[in-house]
Each structure stands twice: as structure tokens, then as C-alpha cells.
Simulated assay, not measured.
Amino acid sequence: METSNVPSFPPNAVIREVGLRDGLQSIQRILPTERKIEWIAGAYAAGQREIEVGSFVPARLLPQLADTAELVTYAKTLPGLRVSVLVPNLKGAGRAIETGADLMLVPLSASRAHSLANLRKTPDEVVAEVARIRAARDAAGSKTLIEGGIGTAFGCTIQGRVEQPEVLRCLQALLDAGADRVSIADTVGYAGPAAVRELFEKARDIAGERFWCGHFHDTRGLALANVYAALETGVARFDATLAGIGGCPHAPGASGNASSEDLAFMLAGMGLETGIDIAALLALRAMVARWLEGETLHGTLWLAGLPTTHAATATTDA
């Protein structure tokens, strides 16, 4: 009896908007807080229910994100919205706990060279910091989830090759240190679908449903293909940025995240429910593009527009 080669996909997928952090940190312009609040409100109105609103890093390092606490406070007023922030250390985690963020992402680079350049810590020192963050979180009685995000998982512009066993070792170490969730990122856009499928399958074998999210850069045009490969492994949550903005200051050439609007369109075409009104998301993109006039934006759906055959997607509060 022949078996079908048609892949099965999860019925639902989540696009976590990270443009307010990963996108804005990559440009010199400081977007006013009121504009960021409009962005959050617009994304929420378009049906997005997970938004990374900023990062608790020193304002002298990233003045673009100095208003993160205010953004968390606003975002927490929106019913059903999961509000996340990036925290590089225990001090940042303390602020995430104080503001009541739903999730804090602790970045770890599988590339030792990138880890030292980006965080001034080795991967194992980051793991130790996660253990301290977990202890502090539990002592405070906080419900803020801890996500260990493994970057440069497919290679690094500084170090070059990153071995798969090292990525999986870091993933297991993060779980052992107390991370509630783990995620994997192609920080520099080196990955292809075959590599994603292989690594994500092995990560799922280790972490199961605690393997939470995939983060792909479109530096070489493969972000959506990599999402497809990840979906084949059962992973159904993906970071993306409106207009594909973003990059990494310590990863030269790592331009452009997966575009939120392009990703939403692809998922809708595959029959996966996202709760996103794509037309509303495109309207928000146009508004943000005006605010960021002169900056390099990415994505393709905004150029061609939605096809006349595209059915409108109703937003939900799920």
C-alpha cells in the first residue's frame, strides 16, 4: 500500500511580531513612543496576539528601545495579547518581572565568537545566567515565562560554521537551567529548508512542545521556505517583522527578517489559521513605512497587493 508523501501541517500557526524590538534596534532612528503604541494597537487590531515590544537593555546601548517598560504597560491593557521582551541578563529579567511581561526571551548564540561579541559571555555563561533568572523568577512568584533563544544556529558571519551537536547541547542546557521554552534562530540567513528540517526534528525530539518558535532571516531569500520546512516538523510559531526590517549589529550582512505580511499570506494560502487580517496588516505596514521613510524595508506582498481571489480573513481574540 502506497503512503502519501504530502506533508501534514499544524492547523494553526502563530506569527509573533518582533519588529518593535528586532526591527527598530537595527536602525538609528528613534521612533517616538506614541508611534510605537499606534503600531502595537494596529497589530492587535489586525489580529496579532503575540508581540515582542522591546528589550530591557541599557538605554545608552540601544536608545531606540529605552521606552520598553512603557510599551509593556500599554500592551498589557489589550485583552488576550501575549507581551514579550528580550532580556540579556538578570537585571533585565528583573525589569521584565516588575512590568509583568508574559514572556522574556534570553538570547544565546551557539557561535562562541558571536556570543562574546553580542553578549560578552560564552554560551555556557548565558546558560548560567538563565539559571539565575529562573531562580529570581520563582522567588518573585512571577508567571513570566523564560524562553531561551538559540541564535546563529546555522552558522555565523564571525565564526563561520556552527556544528549541529553544539546547538543541540545548548538547547538541552537551557532546558536543564530552567528555561520554560526554547527557540532557534537563523540570525544571519544561512539556513536552507533541508538544514532546518533536520535540526528542528532533532530539537523537537529533545524538547517536545517546549520547542516554541523559529526565527528566520530572509538575507538570502529563503525565510519562507525555511518556515515551510519547520512546519513539516510540527513547529507552528514564528518570529517575523512588519516590512521585514531587522538585523543584528554584531552579525554583518544579516539584513531582513521574515516579513510578517508575506508570512501571513503564505500561511493563509496553506490553509493554516492565524487570526490575522492581512489587508489590515498591509495597511499598518504602509503607516509604519511612512514613519520610517528613508529606511530599508523588505517584503514583496505590499508591491503586488492581495490577489482578487484572496478571501478576507476574520480577526479573532484567540
Rank of each mutant, 00 (worst) to 15 (best):
I158T: 15
V106Q: 06
K121F: 06
V162K: 12
I158N: 10
V167R: 13
L119G: 07
A110N: 07
Q159A: 14
V167W: 13
E125H: 08
A131F: 03
L171D: 13
I97K: 09
T122Q: 03
R169S: 11
T99Y: 01
L171S: 04
A140K: 07
I150R: 11
A96G: 08
E166V: 07
E125T: 02
G100P: 10
G141M: 00
E147I: 03
Q164F: 10
A139I: 00
G148C: 10
L145W: 00
Q159V: 08
L116A: 09
V126D: 03
E166H: 15
V126S: 12
G160D: 15
D176C: 05
G148S: 09
K121Y: 04
A173H: 10
S115K: 10
A93K: 02
N89W: 07
K143P: 00
R120F: 11
A113Y: 11
Q164H: 10
D176K: 11
E98Y: 02
L116S: 10
A135F: 09
T99P: 03
L175Q: 04
V106P: 01
I158R: 15
L105S: 12
V130I: 13
Q164E: 15
T144W: 02
D124V: 14
R95W: 15
E166W: 11
R134W: 01
G160I: 12
R137D: 06
Q172W: 04
R169A: 15
V162A: 03
Q172V: 04
L119W: 09
A101H: 06
G151Y: 02
S115V: 07
R120T: 07
E163W: 13
T122K: 04
Q172T: 14
R120I: 03
D176L: 06
D138P: 07
R132L: 08
A153E: 11
M104N: 11
I146M: 03
E163F: 15
T157A: 15
P88V: 14
M104T: 06
I146D: 10
A136R: 08
R137Q: 15
I133P: 08
G100T: 04
V130G: 01
S111V: 09
R95P: 01
I133F: 06
K143F: 05
F154L: 04
R169P: 12
T144Q: 06
L108A: 05
G148W: 14
